[in-house]
Write a protein that binds this DNA or RNA. Structure first.
Lengths: 234, 234
DNA sequence: GCAAAAGTGTTCCAAGTACACCCATGG
DNA sequence: CCATGGGTGTACTTGGAACACTTTTGC
């Protein structure tokens, strides 16, 4: 087989920033790194890209290894290639961010990694340049969610408007007027009101809603304003 | 030196999608590939990442090699890693897109590459998956320019409002009411009106404007609506 | 019966849109 | 003097923002 001669070959890894929402706080999932260097330090879930694997495949595999989940929202974020970012050997890292329903995440599957959810405001020191990766992912989720309805990926199929509002407030670290929020959200036509209520958070109960998947996919690229003055919050 | 054992090492390349605007049409700069495979086919400007080089450094080096330009707008776009994208040997490509002032581009510097500007609507067949890269870059420039004042990077330091409007119309393949366009653009406070006029395009002449760099950098992250209903155009 | 969360409407203001005429100049 | 492109203002519509009270129900 012919090769490109005289060029250096490098290691290629994928690292995943996995977001979840517990009803109150936006969190990311970290693991204790299982090998040297930096063994037992907090780290993003990652792995080397295998010879026959695309980048998307690698990120999906890595996400499944840790969470047991498939078919979740996963998007390429940025590629980090500073020559010294890994002290052992130059390694390029393609980062992906994932949005998962924290309830579907199965703790047991992944116990070898000792994974833990950390609120975004209390992320521990991470290895290498992973701090930068997390910062970038935070920015990106805020940016994208200001324009596109991606945050639904963090909620169960049935959710209430107070839950949804709490999610937006948590992502943007702000408070929103509930009347305006409901108005804006319902005006998108993305939500279908269900007949049953969630009584876990209040005595009266809040109606469940679910996504209108037709509208959801059709309007995903449109600019939807879920957030007032998003530019001010990024 | 310790190494990560048993992992495959890969080639890493950077490819640049270089945009320019000639006053009428949005174009990209392509070269005739100088080596096998696909020698003499139209291709993006690219190159292998060198051992001591970051990705940003590599893309700047490659851009300078072809255009002679430094310090221009250059942004990482996406990383392509399909295992079969390069038939010779697996090569990861980190793509960047650049916005340059086509007048500053110096033809002579790069004559070994036989570069040529192609209107976006008449891009020839490209090697490997570079067609996908160009498509993605087109989407990204439209997306980003709908919200941020990046298109100024395609113009000279002094430009007229008709020029600017023509640029937006060309990027979005649409027409815009000039009264509303001027109003929106001037309302951003980003432009400073100069005293002299460009008489090359009309007898009366159009006033030159330049960017207010203070406001430009301060408002770069804000969402500015240069385009009506941008969501409809992407 | 009361505390706690859910649900609902209206007024006001700002921004966007549609739209048509005059101006300056070189030929 | 006229053809060509440059420049300007207004009325209207729409979407976002501010804002307070009623409803339900478990305890």
């Amino acid at each position: 087989m012919i090769k490109y001669s005289k060029q250096t070959r490098l290691l290629l890894a994928v690292d995943c920033i996995i977001f979840g929402f517990d009803g109150d706080t936006l969190k990311i999932l970290l693991i204790k790194r299982g090998f040297q260097p930096e063994k037992d330090k907090w780290s993003l879930m990652g792995g080397f890209v295998q010879p026959a694997e695309s980048l998307d495949q690698a990120s999906n595999r890595i996400l499944k290894q840790l969470t047991g989940l498939e078919g979740v929202y996963l998007e390429q974020l940025h590629t980090f290639g500073n020559p010294l970012r890994d002290p052992i050997e130059r390694t390029i890292s393609v980062t992906y961010f994932a949005l998962i329903d924290i309830n579907k995440y199965e703790q047991q599957l992944s116990s070898d990694y000792h994974p833990e959810w950390f609120p975004l405001k209390r992320v521990p020191k991470l290895i290498f340049d992973q701090q930068d990766m997390v910062e970038l992912a935070k920015k990106r989720i805020r940016y994208k969610a200001a324009l596109h309805p991606i945050l639904f990926e963090l909620l169960p199929a049935k959710f209430t408007l107070p839950q949804l509002q709490s999610l937006y407030e948590s992502v943007y670290n702000t408070t929103i007027d509930k009347r305006n929020f409901r108005q804006r959200v319902l005006a998108t036509g993305l939500l279908i009101k269900l007949d049953d209520k969630d009584k876990s958070a209040s005595k009266r109960g809040a109606y469940y809603y679910q996504l209108n998947m037709q509208h959801y996919y059709a309007n995903f690229q449109a600019f939807l304003n879920f957030i007032p003055n998003p530019g001010n919050l990024l």
